[in-house]
Design a binder for these strands. Sequence first.
RNA 1: GGGGCUGUAGCUCAGUUGGUUAGAGCUGGACACUCAUAAUGUCUAGGUCGCGGGUUCAAGUCCUGCCAGCCCUACCA
Length: 679
Amino acid sequence: MNRRLLVTSALPYANGPIHIGHLVEYLQTDIWVRFQKLIGNRCLYMCADDTHGTAIMIRARKEGRSEEELIADMSQAHQRDFAGFGIEFDHYGSTNSDENRDLCGQFWKSLRAADLVTERSIEQLYDPEAETFLADRFVRGTCPHCGLTDQAGDNCNNGHTYSPAELIDPKSTLSGATPVLREATHLFVQLEKLHGFLNEWVDQSGALQTEIANYLKGHFLSDDLRDWDISRPAPYFGFEIPDAPGNYWYVWFDAPIGYVATTQQWCDANNEKLADWWNSEDTEIHHFIGKDITYFHTLFWPGMLKTAGFSLPTKVHIHGFLTINGEKMSKSTGTFIAAETFLKHSNPAYLRYFYASKLTPRVEDLDLSMDEFVDKVNSDLVGKVVNLASRVGKFANSTGLSETYPDDGGLFVNAAAAGEKIAEAYEACDYARAMRLIMELADAANPFVEHAKPWEMKKDETRQDELRDVCTVALNLFRQLAIYLSPVLPELADQCGELLGEKIVSWDQSQSPLLGCQPAKFKRMLDRVQKESLEKMIEESKDNAADDQNAVTANPFNDSDAPLKEEPLADEITIDEFAKVDLRVARVITAEHVPEANKLLKLTLSLGGEERRQVFAGIKAAYEPEALVGKLVVMVANLKPRKMRFGMSEGMVAASGPGGADVFILGVDEGAQPGQRVH
RNA sequence: GGGGCUGUAGCUCAGUUGGUUAGAGCUGGACACUCAUAAUGUCUAGGUCGCGGGUUCAAGUCCUGCCAGCCCUACCA
């Protein structure tokens, strides 16, 4: 009996482009959906752009255009990237749609009716310049516990946690303004009232991987569930709450409802009923998400669905993050690779196969090692699979395929039988296992050609029937591989279909051989990965990141680019070379004018204890001597002493600026000790 | 600090309900072949299955204690 499946991937946020980390999820989902369709299940793949929230509002403002323009562009870019990787949605929507607004209203009414909504006033930092409330990540300042500067709004690098209101000298990252504390009324969902339901769902439904169920039980469900802050005061880019004017639904309220709204749009266009998909015992709902958004999808979302009377997820498939060469993706090392950049330099089929070969049903991070990537794609895909077709393709074009399937020592039957296990692996999202099983078949197929020696038959007029039989076997074994791989490599399946004149549309085609047909002229199917192309990809990603960095960090403070232009960066040095420069913290003990000098002050610096250095510094126009005494400065302590007209200068005080009155001595934060080295 | 996961050949991993000399692919070495995208085939090398106890006729496989790595979360599990 055929199943009905509704499948979603998390909605990508309209604040940035798709990168290869995102693609783990969309490819995992796409492969699953293609597999389901191939085995004959009715399956819809729904996705949309997640468009609301402060970040979008701010970005649009910065770019000087409306939010609608921004999200329209972003949606187009996202869909272009997804299409480039062969990710095929049945419908791609947007959370900023009429359908979504209506459905949000419907969910909201249910929450009200169930008496789950409560109201409370909270204090939050407010940016008076940008005229908006600030989420924690939009505030930076000094940690109230340890004094570290430029720390995030809720925790510092030393591991202290605090509320943004406690930050010393807080600054808004949006405008650079000092935020003020303001009170605002927020609406909350009392999730605790659904505690019993959630306990049971997490424990009994089978919708969650066991490690996730354990995590939820230990982490959240063991205690009272906190109220969920579900509204944001104006200004906010989103939907205004109908019965609470001036308040907007928090982006995490309307985002998952976007799954339903997108289905609604698809239904309207295809003359189907929403209830058949979101309110039916006969439809399974499968969400694919990353581990970072676990609790939105496993606590709030089921709670909302339950309350509003929709079907609960049959399964929430949670995956880990992508690492590259064992490390987190990083802009500076060029491993933060945009989908677009990847497509420019490489073939999406490679990434589809590589991810498939690494994905398991567990919540584990997936590592993309460049060397492994090259090895795997070249030896598995090209060496074993594509090469199988390539080595008999030309012969087959002249011989055609036999009318009856020849004796192949049981290879075809064996591979047909393996289909069941492979299908089970796909179903369970254990693609790594599926790929392993398929490669075993490829490993068995190649020796057949080797031992049959078709090239000898080719030269002998009397052995053309034998040659045709070998081609028949080899191409049918290849076709089985192409069918089994088609969820991962749809293009290869198409090429196989073209070669043999029968499109691959169903898993069942793997169970019986194709006979008596005339293969088309053989065309090359897949090139080997060039390592150099990956290197170029990484180089370009570095450049992109550098551009980004400039765009992002320059903006909020409006820093000019003139200083850097006037004095460009020096040649790169190694850390060893840097280590030769011994910078030390020093305290200014005395500072006096040098009568004969125009620009110099004579300083005595202490490196702690009895260590003293006399330094002449060209800062007369910028600093009064009295103001310097007692100050901590940074000096170059191992600079070769230089004899000046006024005496020996035994080092340099570090300062920036073009000179004259514009000189700025480097200070050191409180707590530093004279004599400490600067690393 | 707490929770979870992992630790098997140089690398990536399989090892079913404990049962004969622990497997695959890649890499390395030797040879062969030439149909094929320097692809392929045959042979071969390489492991005290993280370490120590225990249960058992028998443990990579079960129990226990350590050690290491990763992930999550932190004066709340």
